[in-house]
Structure formats: structure tokens, C-alpha cells
Design a protein around this nucleic acid. Structure first.
Lengths: 116, 116
DNA sequence: TTTTGCCATCGTGGATGGACGATAAAGCAC
DNA sequence: GTGCTTTATCGTCCATCCACGATGGCAAAA
């Protein structure tokens, strides 16, 4: 097969990755984790990207570049940061890449911030 | 008078600064604000400082330097970052400075993160 | 196979961050 | 006043961040 995704499913997010996170919200390891996540969120453009992805029920691909006032390579860099932090995920769909929120990472971030 | 604070009140936090925050949790301004707060939290040492301050019912002063594995000037720099972000406050008490959490800023941060 | 379009990566330059030691400033004790 | 203690600030060095244009890789279309 040439494509694993039927055309009408373009932009669909992968399974929500359910499950309760049992890791602690404090301690040295949690400190590092919170700092790492917060650092990833600590840029206006990345916050904006998270907002855009949250506003779509399905995920968008490179339309982000059209909505943001920076070059394509810059957007790609910020997406990489968010992906490495575990806040978004990218699914390759043919020539495009489909980004969407990673609910697990976002929930973890909220839990850690809530633990402050 | 030589001191405005009676000895038994050393380390007491200023009034909690109550009041509901009516500012929006999204929009361009909120994005900037969230990014700014997250950036301030985006360092392990600063997370640790917030945790130490949260663990004290009253606030500590320069004991932070004893509890942290970095030089005094480095601690001071991080405290400045947190203060400028509005996450902590410092009260001058004689030759010492008494730091404690700024509940208003912390609540704002949690609200913004919750809005993601 | 060649072309086209999308995206990641490279390389660069300027700005910022984070660490330190040294120094300055301010308040208290004497 | 002198000295002592505590904290902020300065100056420096190195690392990382952030923006950009240019390049390269890859999958679908022609």
C-alpha cells in the first residue's frame, strides 16, 4: 500500500494515549521535568502554536506557517522543541506532516504546575 | 524606630493579596504572559526555589543559599528572575531580605496553564 | 523518471542565559 | 565612627536560544 491513511482521515489525531500518570509531582526528578516542560512553553510563538493546535479538533499540518509571522524553518524549529518536550506529536502523512497536541504531555504539565 | 517588624514576626509573609483575576487566559497578551511566566519557571533551580518557598509556612531569607548547590550571586540572580516574573516577592527586613511566594502570580500562572 | 511541493536540517550571526568571583551597598552591633 | 553580616550588582566567560536563507530528502504527481 502506498498510504496508510485514507484521504478522509487526513488530519485525524492518533489515539489519545489514555491512562493515568502515576509519576510524582515533586522531587528532584519532577523539578527537572517541570523545568523542561516550562522551558518549552516559555516562548510566545510556541504558546501560539499550542493554541492553534488546540483550536483544531483535528490536527493541522504546514498551515501553521501561514498563520505565523515567521519563516518556515523557524516554525519547524519550534515544532521540534515542542515535540522533544512531549507536548505535541507529528504524524507523517505522505509529503506532509500532521501535528497535534499530545494530551499526555499536556496533562503532565498541568499536573506538575498544579503541584506548585 | 529602628525596625518596623517585631522579632517574632520575622519571616512572616505580607498579606495574601486577595482578589479575583479577571484578565483573559487567551489572546495575544495572554500568550506573552504565559510564555513569560513559563520561561521564569523553566529552570530546575528556580523550580526548586519555588518548592522551598512553598514548603515554608513563613518565608525564608538567605537560607536558600545554604540549601542550593550554587553560589550566592547565582541564587540572587534566579531570585531576581522569579521576582520580575511576579512569582515571588522580597521584603527587606533589616540586613536580610525575606522572600516568599506571590500567590497572585502563581495563581495566574496556573490559570493560564489550565487554559491550554 | 523527472518534476513539484512540503518539511527538516544545516550553517550563521546576533542576542540572551547562566555560572562564577569580586565588589559595592545597606543595616545592625559595638 | 569601625567592623560584621547579608544581599545586590558588576564584569566575564561559555553555552544555548532564536531568527534567517539555503540546502537536502522524500513522497506524490506528471
Amino acid at each position: 500500500m502506498t498510504s496508510t491513511v485514507p484521504p478522509e482521515a487526513r488530519g485525524a489525531c492518533p489515539p489519545p494515549a489514555q491512562g493515568v500518570d502515576l509519576r510524582p509531582v515533586e522531587g528532584a526528578e519532577a523539578d527537572e521535568e517541570l523545568a523542561s516542560l516550562a522551558k518549552a512553553v516559555g516562548h510566545p510563538l510556541r504558546v501560539q502554536i499550542l493554541r492553534i493546535l488546540a483550536a483544531r479538533t483535528s490536527c493541522v499540518c504546514g498551515d501553521l506557517v501561514d498563520e505565523l509571522p515567521v519563516a518556515q524553518s523557524t516554525v519547524s524549529q519550534h515544532l521540534k522543541v515542542l515535540k522533544e518536550a512531549g507536548l505535541i506529536r507529528g504524524e507523517v502523512d505522505g509529503p506532509r506532516v500532521c501535528y497535534c497536541l499530545e494530551p499526555r504531555g499536556l496533562r503532565r504539565f498541568k499536573a506538575l504546575v498544579g503541584g506548585l
